[in-house]
Amino acid sequence: MHRSNHRGQPYLYSTNVIPGPSAKANDRKLIGISEWNYDIPIVFKLLLSGNPKTCPSSIWDNPEEIALIGDYASGVKNLEGFLSKVALPSAQDLIAESIDFLNKPDNQNQYFVLECGEIFDMSEIPLLEQNLALLEQIRNLQPEAEQALQSLVPPPVVPPKPVGFFSKLLGRAPESQTPAQDPMKPIYALGLGNWSNILYFDFTNA
């Protein structure tokens, strides 16, 4: 496939063959797993964290290795370890959905492939340089994983200010409080809830 337009999405696939010039000749399969908007979520990085390496892109016509590949089984195991630390009751359905999807035999392959060319292309930094930086980040995910877990801890509830005597007398309404954040937003931001075999770049019949 040729250079994509600027949709700003990373694409996650599973595959049975390492992408490269001879991949198609080896009965390659590329199964859609997920895509995201304008970010590379921690879930994608965890799934790539099983012995990650650079590899050629299957989407972009680029001679450099601007995609990443990692071991499927190890990536799922690493994700399960991370999700086991998420205790929020509201997250459990999304977690169960994720594990079920990733453990479906039709989705399982030897490798995960992460295509971030569209994200990289939004910057002036060379694509290969960004891919190598992402690879290094995935190899040292612990700080980011801890930060992601911390983001799920709800902020302390600030009680509303009591209405003063003169405010009551004058009929003033109490000061409006800052609207509460959607409690599901940080959970979805991990990269959950968007699993699909049909991605924008679909290789089903390729």
Rank of each mutant, 00 (worst) to 15 (best):
36 W>E: 14
54 T>R: 14
79 L>M: 10
148 A>D: 06
20 G>M: 05
53 K>S: 13
198 I>A: 08
124 E>I: 12
156 P>T: 01
199 L>R: 08
19 P>R: 02
49 S>W: 05
194 N>P: 00
140 N>M: 02
98 S>K: 08
195 W>Q: 14
110 Q>P: 00
109 N>C: 15
93 D>M: 09
169 L>V: 10
169 L>F: 13
24 K>G: 05
119 I>M: 09
153 V>C: 03
52 P>F: 02
101 F>C: 07
188 Y>L: 12
197 N>E: 15
171 G>L: 09
93 D>C: 01
18 I>N: 01
89 P>G: 05
180 A>D: 14
18 I>S: 09
16 N>P: 04
107 N>V: 03
129 E>F: 02
146 E>M: 02
157 V>M: 12
64 E>Q: 13
132 L>A: 00
77 K>E: 14
6 H>N: 11
141 L>W: 04
126 P>S: 08
65 E>A: 10
153 V>S: 06
110 Q>K: 15
50 G>V: 09
78 N>I: 09
187 I>A: 09
196 S>A: 13
53 K>G: 08
54 T>S: 10
62 N>S: 05
133 A>C: 01
114 L>I: 03
157 V>Q: 13
37 N>V: 04
179 P>Y: 04
69 I>G: 06
107 N>R: 15
45 K>D: 03
65 E>G: 01
112 F>L: 09
66 I>H: 13
120 F>T: 07
60 W>S: 12
170 L>D: 03
193 G>M: 00
109 N>G: 10
66 I>D: 06
148 A>G: 08
29 K>M: 06
25 A>K: 14
112 F>I: 04
53 K>E: 15
121 D>N: 14
4 S>Q: 07
197 N>C: 10
8 G>D: 02
7 R>P: 00
167 S>D: 15
103 N>K: 13
198 I>C: 04
188 Y>P: 01
29 K>H: 07
191 G>S: 06
70 G>I: 01
16 N>A: 03
201 F>Q: 09
5 N>Y: 11
200 Y>A: 11
159 P>G: 14
18 I>T: 10
